[in-house]
Amino acid sequence: MVRILPMAASSSLHLSSLLHYSSPSDPIQRPPHPLSPPSRHRRIKTSKSTRMEGYNITACTGNMAQASTAVTEENALEWVKKDNRRMLHVVYRVGDLDKTIKFYTECLGMKLLRKRDIPEERYTNAFLGYGPEDSHFVVELTYNYGVDKYDIGAGFGHFGVAVEDVYKTVDLIKAKGGTVTREPGPVKGGKTVIAFIEDPDGYKFELLERGPTPEPLCQVMLRVGDLDRSIEFYEKAFGMELLRKRDNPDYKYTIAMMGYGPEDKNAVLELTYNYDVKEYDKGNAYAQIAIGTDDVYKTAEAIKLHGGKITREPGPLPGISTKIAACVDPDGWKTVFVDNIDFVKELE
């Protein structure tokens, strides 16, 4: 739902200036991937006038709708916990949209929910997932005309997909020419069968063997520099719950699962801390997660109170009525909050 511009952006102040671009020539310090082998293993659609950056723009000037009752530091956490929030979609760039759609539908079993081409802006969007956008977490792919390669960076980790048979899924992926980076087998120290694959752009997917689940697209893994700080931020500012935390001293990393409900029924955010690594290059491929909220104004105030940086003050997007607010977490990962009722209207 949010348009992402190609790397060749103008030098003037533009929505694309908010996106993290790094020079292709910049060296990338890549710490070990803790999940790579052998370590371990309401109705909400975007109108055609909503550009991909629509949910990723910086603090704007001009008229804004009047904010609802301000939250205080004392009641912010209580309100955040009561807010009706859900992870809506994750946005990232790809170099060959048709190739990626083919891989996701044939190998991962996703459905192409909708596709939108905006030739005057030179980009195309595709929304894919395992069910309707009003009830499922989906991926939003962006293809910018003429840009066939992006730097994924060292900070983004992987997406997680729950499947009923990891071995059969991997066999299918191999038959379709996909790349398997970790063969199927039990996770180190556990019983869950997993495998790791890469899509045509090099994004990693962890396949997790589970029974039937309402949310097969189940994880987004990001690396952070201070896990306790991130957990506190996502709990207090985003209203997420710490579902579990696990330290692996043998491989020098700790993970925390954060979300709005149990892992077997909801998409979750997997935060990974690699010992002694405080910062990561984020590249220019991964963009952000969008989350639904009942009140973008209160959401923005709560984020400010708990140390987040607002990059787009709450209010309606130019040209349409959808209200959004955008922010970055302490590590600079972007999130956009979208008004639930407005999102429903867009999908209609």
Rank of each mutant, 00 (worst) to 15 (best):
L97Y: 10
L112A: 10
E74N: 03
M87E: 08
F137T: 00
P132H: 02
Y123K: 02
D117C: 05
R86K: 12
V90W: 09
Y123Q: 04
A162F: 05
E106C: 04
D134V: 00
K176A: 15
K168W: 07
Y150P: 10
G157H: 04
E140N: 14
P132T: 09
D165H: 13
V163P: 08
A162Y: 08
L172G: 06
V90S: 13
P132K: 00
V166E: 07
K174V: 05
L112I: 14
D148P: 09
R122H: 11
R116S: 15
V170H: 02
Y143F: 13
D96Y: 08
A126F: 07
V166H: 04
Y143W: 15
V166G: 01
D151R: 15
P132S: 03
K174Q: 13
L113D: 11
I118K: 04
K176D: 06
T100Q: 14
P119D: 08
R114Q: 15
L113W: 10
Y167P: 06
S135P: 01
P132M: 06
V170E: 08
N84Q: 03
F159P: 10
F137L: 02
L97F: 12
T169R: 07
K111T: 07
I173D: 06
L77S: 11
V163R: 15
L141E: 03
D171L: 14
Y92L: 09
L128M: 15
Y104M: 08
N84I: 06
H158Q: 07
G157T: 12
G146I: 01
W79V: 04
K82C: 00
V147R: 02
E164R: 15
R93T: 01
Y123L: 03
E78A: 15
E164A: 04
K82V: 01
W79C: 01
L108Y: 08
V147A: 12
R86A: 11
F137K: 00
N84K: 00
C107L: 06
L108H: 10
K149I: 06
D117N: 06
K99I: 02
D165F: 00
V139D: 05
G146W: 11
E106W: 03
E133N: 03
D148L: 12
Y104I: 07
D117S: 12
G177P: 05
E120Y: 05
K81I: 07
V166T: 07
K81V: 12
P132Q: 02
E133L: 01
F103K: 15
V161M: 10
S135W: 00
G177I: 08
T142W: 14
T105F: 13
A126V: 05
E73H: 08
Y145Q: 14
Y167V: 05
K115L: 04
I118S: 05
K102S: 15
Y130K: 07
G129S: 11
Y150V: 10
G155H: 14
L141N: 09
N75H: 02
V161N: 03
A126Q: 06
G109R: 09
A76Y: 01
K176I: 04
E74P: 01
R122I: 01
K168M: 11
Y92F: 14
F103A: 08
P132G: 01
N75V: 09
W79N: 02
L88W: 01
E120R: 00
L113R: 13
A126H: 04
E73Q: 14
R116H: 15
E78S: 05
